[in-house]
Design a protein around this nucleic acid. Structure first.
Length: 778
DNA sequence: TGCTTACCACTTTTT
DNA sequence: GTGGTAAGCA
């Protein structure tokens, strides 16, 4: 199509220097690479450009390229980078190319590249390539999985009441507090998933006499798996398992013959099962004269709790050699083009503080090189206050003066922190923490304190934190669901029909109904064609709103009215759910719950009524709605999926977990290193300076004895330290211009300070950054 | 140093 | 409710 020099010229034309990417944009399709890429070095771009090079220079068919990443947002990002760059290069070539080239170019359909998460691709492929006449697998999410484990695994034979099982859970989780059936179910399901990811022999695990509760847990897991198999459903772990089985059995031969190039991003978060899948795909690719390129950074591995095993990445060259017989070329991407010198230096220093941590990194990993052009020179900032409230207050002032005002002067310097004159906005500021939760058990947390204060400014700043709140506690959601309850169950009879309705759910329903009552009393717009009170009254009486035209017979109430339809009718009075980005995310969650409910129940998530329906039947449909829609929403079983939004909202300050922020970058990043650590308390030690191995590592240790991977080489507590270092490494490498650490004074007291890995403590208890003199305090 | 008393925070992250 | 932490006091 085009020559290699032409391609490289096009890259330079797009201000991309091909030199650091080296073999990735030079090698032919049959090359294999192991790319070790630090933060900000453009690894996603590197993958996108490799794909483009293969298509444009080597005329590889886009449909034969398979690119995977780990999160859905990252997958969308890979896709959009490929398409965007493809479009730019195509435009440029079309402008000067020959007629023949133009013809060939226009025939390339870049959209046919397969991109996605491994799970989404597995699902797509198993659906598209299934034998004629068979059903595609139905994939269930976390919430449904836990619910089915409870129903099919734990309630079956009363396993949830067996003392041995409860004892075992208490021993592993380290607490008996609030060990509800829901938590027990999640615990057993974690064993089930880990067992699949690590390919553990569960029978051996059950028979090893480790604990009397284990055989019961394994029985529950088998009952759960049998139930899913019988109903044609799979959870994420079973989906991957099935994908591997089908690859190995030759059922996906057609796919293997099509895929020539495999590109894997975020390889450090791969688990053993996924590794085997990639190796199968790689074998197919090699047979077709293609290859595999994996990209990752062991320092950014964050998903141990999902079975990710970092050593699979650091030992990749040897492992892929043994399994596939190839020798990938190692490529190090070390030029950080994201952050200022100060931030790159800080990040490099941080990751090298802990001597023990060196042992687990990729051998001879080079430090990041600062390559950002025209970078500013802000030092790393710190804001520490006696209480969370004072911290929130001062942080609000800082953000206000940066976003709304004329800037925030840095003490003892001439620097002023201010928003970019070219269209800077609140979206340039994000706050990262280990959890974006707005309320803890003991009251509001920093995100909520900030949300309130920023919202109360003369020029209010909105925040974007859809994961921070229980759906049930969002006022607008309460109003909407309260109205729905008033419509579908006006006499409030539903709860009486349900014998063991959880008390908490009932309380939430009462709150919703009150919120709806106040909302309705405020008589919100629009009043035409009819006010909301009239709409609700018509529903409550199951009487159609009379047609205005005279002479027409009055319409009768429908036999079954879909709940979803009712929701959309009510949205008339809720612009929040149509225009607000958080509102949209909550609406999607409600929508999803109702859709799931209609697949789950007998009545298709409808409200039955009208003269032809016997009251008992209508009651049954109502009870089903309570169980499948209102109870899960009230008890916060439903999770918001903000990945739907491909771009983050403008004009909002984002509050994200560090996990969510992985792969993203922002001008000003505030990292909450401990806004609720008032003293050296054991209860939160796991978040800053672990004292023991914790539940995740405990399960890992027990199961891995029966896995081909064998027991982990490092102690559980060491793995916890490694994980914390990685977490804050990711957080510290997000900012482009300014990094601001915030926390309580207890974290920086020269004596008896609260230990925290994020602030320069190593696991031996040495505080390398005693007193935090390396931060510029504001 | 040992005792009393007030105070603190209760596992997170996601396909 | 529990089990740990920290400060004050003798």
């Amino acid at each position: 199509m085009i020559t290699q020099p032409d391609f490289e010229a096009e890259l330079r034309h797009l201000s991309i220097d091909p030199a650091p990417l080296g073999p990735l944009v030079v090698d032919l399709a049959d090359a294999d690479h192991f790319v070790v890429a630090g933060p900000g070095t453009g690894k996603t771009t590197a993958l996108a450009l490799r794909a483009l090079k293969l298509i444009l220079v080597d005329e590889v068919d886009p449909a034969s390229i398979l690119a995977t990443t780990f999160t859905r947002r990252a997958a969308a990002e890979v896709r959009s980078r490929i398409l965007q760059r493809a479009d730019q290069i195509r435009q440029s070539l079309l402008a000067k190319g020959s007629l023949a080239l133009k013809g060939r170019l226009s025939r390339i359909d870049f959209n046919r590249i397969r991109t996605g998460t491994l799970d989404s691709l597995s699902q797509e492929i198993l659906t598209d390539y299934r034998p004629l006449g068979s059903y595609p697998p139905v994939v269930i999410d976390q919430y449904l999985g836990d619910a089915l484990m409870l129903r099919a695994g734990l309630f079956d034979h009363g396993r949830f009441r067996r003392q041995e099982l409860v004892d075992y859970a208490v021993r592993v989780l380290g607490t008996s507090r609030g060990l509800s059936p829901k938590k027990l179910s999640a615990f057993v399901r974690e064993i089930h998933e880990r067992a699949l990811y690590d390919r553990t022999d569960l029978n051996a695990f059950a028979g090893a006499g480790i604990h009397a509760g284990i055989p019961i847990a394994v029985d529950a897991i088998e009952a759960y798996r049998a139930y899913l198999a019988a109903s044609g459903q799979v959870d994420f772990a079973l989906l991957e398992q099935r994908f591997l089985d089908d690859l190995r059995s030759g059922r996906l031969k057609k796919l293997q013959e099509e895929v020539q190039v495999v590109l894997v991003d975020e390889y450090q978060d791969t688990n053993f099962l996924q590794e085997l899948i990639y190796f199968e795909l790689a074998k197919g690719a090699k047979a077709k004269g293609g290859g595999i390129t994996v990209v990752g950074d062991d320092d950014q591995a964050l998903y141990r709790f999902r079975g990710a095993t970092t050593s699979l990445f650091s030992a990749y060259p040897g492992r892929v050699h043994d399994a596939v017989g190839i020798q990938p070329q190692q490529v190090n991407l070390v030029e950080n083009r994201r952050s200022t010198d100060d931030i790159v230096t800080w990040t490099n220093d941080f990751v090298r503080l802990d001597g023990e941590y060196h042992g687990v990194r990729v051998p001879n990993k080079p430090a990041l090189i600062r390559r950002r052009q025209a970078a500013g020179r802000f030092p790393v900032l710190g804001m520490f206050r006696p209480t969370m409230q004072e911290l929130a207050e001062d942080l609000t002032q800082l953000i206000d003066s940066v976003v709304n005002g004329s800037g925030f002067p840095i003490p003892r310097s001439k620097l002023v922190l201010q928003r970019s004159p070219q269209g800077g906005s609140a979206a340039d500021v994000v706050m990262l923490s280990s959890s974006p939760l707005e309320e803890g058990e003991s009251g509001p947390l920093l995100p909520l304190e900030l949300r309130r204060r920023l919202g109360g400014l003369p020029h209010p700043i909105k925040v974007y934190n859809p994961r921070g709140r229980d759906i049930a506690s969002v006022p607008e959601v309460g109003q909407l669901l309260g109205l729905i309850l008033a419509c579908v169950d006006p006499t409030q009879n539903g709860p009486n029909l349900i014998p063991n309705l959880p008390r908490e759910a009932l309380n939430v329903f009462t709150v919703w109904r009150q919120e709806a009552h106040h909302f309705q009393a405020s008589n919100p717009a629009p009043q035409a064609p009819l006010p909301i009170a009239q709409f609700v009254a018509a529903w409550a009486a199951r009487t159609p709103i009379r047609p205005r035209s005279r002479g027409r017979a009055p319409a009768t109430w429908p036999r079954d009215a879909p709940l979803l339809q009712l929701v959309y009718n009510l949205l008339t009075w809720f612009p929040y759910f149509q225009s607000d980005l958080e509102g949209l995310a909550y609406l999607e969650a409600m929508n999803r719950t109702i859709t799931t409910a209609s697949n789950l129940g007998k009545f298709d998530a409808c409200i039955l009524g009208g003269p032809s329906v016997p009251p008992q039947v209508a009651d049954k449909a109502l009870v089903e709605l309570y169980w499948n829609v209102f109870v899960p929403l009230a008890l916060d079983f439903i999770e918001v999926d903000e990945d739907l939004l491909e771009t983050l909202p403008r004009d909002r300050l984002g509050i994200y977990s560090i996990h969510q922020a992985k792969g993203l970058e922002f001008p000003l990043v505030i990292v909450d290193v401990g806004s609720s650590f008032k003293q050296r308390h054991w209860a939160h030690a796991f978040k800053r300076f672990p004292r023991d191995e914790g539940p995740s590592s405990r399960i890992e240790d027990q199961l891995r004895r029966f896995s081909p991977l064998g027991v982990p080489a490092r102690q559980g507590r060491d793995r916890c330290f490694d994980d914390l270092i990685r977490q804050y490494f990711v957080a510290y490498s997000r900012p482009q211009d300014v990094l601001l650490l915030v926390g309580l004074d207890a974290l920086r007291a020269p004596q008896n300070s609260v230990e925290h890995v994020a602030l320069g403590w190593d696991r031996t208890g040495t505080w390398h950054w005693r007193g935090l003199g390396n931060l510029t305090m504001v």
